[in-house]
Design a protein around this nucleic acid. Sequence first.
RNA 1: GGGUUUGUAGCUCAGUUGGCUAGAGCGUGCGAUUCACAUUCGCAAGGCCGCAGGUUCGAGCCCUGCCAGACCCACCA
Length: 928
Amino acid sequence: MKLSKAYEPNTYEPEVYALWETSGAFAPTGQGEPYSIVMPPPNANADLHVGHSLETIKDIVIRYQRMNGRDTIYIPGADHAGFETWVVFEKALEKEGKSRFDFSREILYKMTWDFVEQNRGNMELQVRALGVSCDWAANTFTLDKKVVETVYETFKKMWDEGLIYRGERIVNYCTQHQTSFADIEVVFREEKSHLWHIAYPVVENETAAEIIVATTRPETMLGDMAVAVHPDDKKYKDLVGKMVRLPLTDREIPIVADEAVELGFGTGAVKVTPAHDPLDFDIGQRHDLEPLQIIGLDGKITDNAPRKYRGMDVDTARETVVKDLEELGLIRKIEKFEHQVPHCYKCGSVIQPLIMKQWFMDVQPLAQRAKKVVEAGEIKFTPAQKADELVRYYDEMRDWNISRQIPWGIPIPAFQNVADEDDWIFDARVDQAEITVAGKTYQRDNDTFDTWFSSGQWPFITTDFLSGGELARFYPTTLMEHGVDIMRPWCSRMIMFGLYRTGQVPFRNVYLHGMVTDEKGQKMSKSKNNVVNPMDIIDEYGSDALRIGIVMNRSAGQAQAFSVASVVAGRNFCNKLWNIARFIEGQDKNRDIDEPKSLPEAVRSYDEAKVISPVTTGGNHVPKEDGLASPINSASAPTLLPRRSSCLSSQDSSLTLSPSFDSRVAVSCGSALDAPISLADHWVLRQLDTARKTIDGHIKNYRFAEAVDIVYHVVWDDVADWFIEASKINPRPAFLRHVLDIILRLVHPFAPFVSETIWMTLHDDETLLISQKWPEKLIFDKAKAAEFDQIKELVSSVRFITTELPAGKYDLIYEHEPLINENSDLIEALAGLKSVRPTKKGRGMRLAVTDHAAWLDIDEDLLYEHQTRLEMRLVAVREEITNLEKRLSSSGYVDRAPKHLVEETKRQLDDKRTLETRLIAELDVMKE
RNA sequence: GGGUUUGUAGCUCAGUUGGCUAGAGCGUGCGAUUCACAUUCGCAAGGCCGCAGGUUCGAGCCCUGCCAGACCCACCA
């Protein structure tokens, strides 16, 4: 036997993947309508997390479309993940007792590059281990030359159009990482603090000697430039325009009226610190207040503050300021207060809103254009309501701070005149620290782009759309699939940039998956120590098991717990498929007995045609010398597929007529060998055909869990439990192989490794399942399939009764029943009966649920036990009849409900009444 | 504060525009089995579909309110 006793995924998966890769099966064929997916590039420097196993979703789609003859490409990538990677790298530096300030930017960039290079291969091997059938030839790193060049073009275009500006803005600044963050990179945490009420003395005023402000950050008062009140606040009406003396300083600041102040909160008066609070910055802009920076980039009080406080960190300054104010008797009240405090999402330190000169992008022109497209439904979202969320987000978007103060990233191509700080020019010569243009000296800006600025251009960069490369036909891409968490930062920007640069949407469809949480529904995070490593799961259960387990029971956009139980179910499924194949292979050994050795002429001619068929990968099996290294546990060189390996070197083996396996031969030429004969044959074809159509519908509607469910059950329930069991009466290897052929194709997008392993092992030719066609419409006899339904029903009925009876084998007897007569062996075997034989007059226990005159030949005392069950069943049936009658007699139903439903209901009622009559008759007989 | 979303079997979740007896996996109980598979087979039990109203011939699904949770956004000092 070629198939080993148990399916051991780790033995086969690495080599199967290598075979796919070297055979060129992942590359687009250039024929058929394009279907393209771009992978959200995983962090090049990190291991995959379990959420990445949802790449399975894209892989299911791409494999399915590939099998359906589309010209497919799935473009992989790797992300330099600017900030994420920088944090990891800086920690590594610190371990060596060094800091970023010890090196120049060039050196840091080079060091980080090397650091990432060491780890990058890992991530890509892990993607392979998941079985993702992406085209590695198209692999793109976010710092590749073409990426940088395109990003610079975009930046230049925006610069020229006035969409890029240098702005003094409040930014979210982490004093630990010494960089600013986008709003979305800041996490707010509820914190218990205090609200200090501080009295500011009013200068020369009779009506009030002081005005009291409330603040959670008393230390920032050192940078106060005004006190603001609401214009409608009667309490302060007379004070607007007056000056107050700012305690602890020698400055006097005005009282201004501004609508941003909320009436009724705190004291109604707000201290205004334009340099350290976003709201205050806005107020300052409206009232021409000069921001005074009193907290520096290092998180310490600057020289702009009174001498006493200079150099203190923020917390110390706060304590000192409060103490000093208390001594002056200016603290009027201290309230307990809970509020949202911004924290760095990486290191957790408090974010300081600081004023900085930064590069900004004017987002609204792009956002509004993107909004229109989304509103118009030009991109189909799954789940659909996410599109509405995106539309709202576009309206809310504020100008985007695109510069970051870290060396790891794409340098911003801008230079500043050393003699005029407002004179900036665009120049791509970022490898030079200083350039001379028109006799003036310019210094390079040391900032880099926010990662989303470049990744937002990903679809048209990776497809080389702007330069009209070979992959340009794949833009706009067909499907974008990623997690709900990055819809705002990433998806929104891809649409904006896509429209801006190409005039087209970057993708036609968006599918958003929910987060994978731990088994308790908690977010996975390193700090909670609840992270599941997908590679561990693959080691233990296999890649296919993980793929099935992660997709099973998961619906779009919903967060869902990772479930080992589902993975186990996936593994068991693979094992089931494996054993179906083993069984069929075992039957195959005996094929000489019932099949002619010489193949029909039609088969021969088909096989010749096959050689030039684009579907097969015939001549492409040229393994690279070094290309077969296995992604995981490469140490144990698999012993699988010995024959396949030898095939690889035999270039013309596809010309040899294979006597064994390709059942498409039979499908297409109508060979009698694998045509359906028995009732079970017709029935299983019907089940498979229904499954095929249902899966088509589910994939089209992005309902992957449902598709998996169908595959799971058609293979396990229909094929294994019924068809194969039934076929044991009279096994016909050719037809069994035909069925196996179909299920392997149906299974392949979902569990590619095990299906391919079986395919390759049982095929003597060089074909790969990955390149086969998805099953087409299957031909079967409906009446015969329905007859098998009846047999199934009969068998289930017998099983139901006999499990309740004392252990032992029973006889089934029947009156003039041709169906039973012709299938008595089958029924006997499936139902575990002693015998099935005809009789003139039935006796014992009549099988109530079927239409057939069949009885279990049992003793009277057993019969009595069964009487109760029949009576219970009669009660249930009568209840159903009452319900149906009620429905049919209700005034509106017959008139208003769809006709077919009404017909259906009537038919049901008839059926139930028939059943009722029969039950009554049987009970009468029993009582006699 | 605003928005989104969830509540269905012991657990994790499906249930498409309202329409047959509300399903799956795992778990549970009973039984079987050396012949592809104990990663097996058969049978079964288990549901006021969060609560209360409403619309409808008909509601797990639509509407209103309430209870309980999750997530996102936001400048309440």
